[in-house]
Nucleic acid binder design. Structure first.
Lengths: 140, 140
DNA sequence: TTGAAGTGCAACTAAGATGGTTACAGTTCA
DNA sequence: TGAACTGTAACCATCTTAGTTGCACTTCAA
């Protein structure tokens, strides 16, 4: 369990809330971490086509597209390339009927679980998250 | 990402397929691991009320209840006490509107995702998994 | 009662993942 | 040209996970 997905979402929400490019230092202050950590995540987000980043003295990052066109699912896929649930460390014994088939059966179930999560994430945009943040601010 | 959930399910499926108590050694052979690893998981499964274990020379483990009355959700809760998605390592900056509210917003979303998974797991029993394994065996 | 077979547990180990830090090369712009 | 920024590598500390070893305790048949 790691923090990349939520931190990446944090980054993108911050970018969505700004009209101008945001430096990794500014993001790092919001996230409360080191700018290099932020930069590492920004490289992945850029590879996924979610942000564009400008080098040099006027550098900074911006969303690559409108916040309404970025879903949590896209963020999730950029940050978490693996599966949600793990398999055996060693291949189970193929001479045993359970050992020989349990992974196949369970991978089917795990796929369904992942799909349920993906459907949810695919239905939530960055604009909605920013909106929810702003509502929370007003209620404080 | 670990292997405890699927290995615990493997263990329980094996117990469900047997009329007699199964030793940790036999389970270890099916899972292809060391018996101590199995015993560790069995202790947790027993605490969760899913298995009963007999010590001594006639020792071994059995399901604590019929396979139709054990759901994947119960197994999951016994093996994975934490959350599915991680939060920031350090508390984000409360002076920033995004930093101050992103965790609240995202925890709501993560709860929904976990719920979707739990609904799925709660609908699948061990008996169904054993049935699926047996169907897979017949098709090999 | 004894010895064998099994559980439960502690301690140790190796491997891998994660996130933080430091240093610096490269890029851009005033 | 120098400052401000990105991108990257290397290192480090911490934590988790799963495997191994050793052994105390439990149980039961002989």
């Amino acid at each position: 369990m790691n923090s990349r997905f939520i931190v990446a979402t944090h980054i993108l929400t911050l970018l969505a809330s700004s009209d101008v490019p945001v430096t990794s230092e500014e993001i790092a202050v919001s996230v409360n971490t080191n700018p290099v950590v932020i930069r590492r995540l920004l490289v992945e987000l850029a590879k996924a086509g979610l942000v564009v980043t400008q080098q040099g003295s006027a550098g900074g990052s911006q969303l690559a597209r409108p916040a309404e066109l970025i879903t949590l699912l896209q963020v999730y896929h950029a940050m978490e390339p693996g599966h949600l649930f793990g398999m055996h460390r060693q291949t189970p014994n193929p001479e045993c009927e359970i050992g020989n088939n349990i992974q196949g059966v369970m991978s089917g179930i795990f796929d369904q679980a992942e799909q349920a999560v993906e459907i949810l994430f695919g239905s939530i945009t960055l604009a909605q998250i920013l909106g929810a943040v702003r509502i929370a601010v007003m209620q404080t």
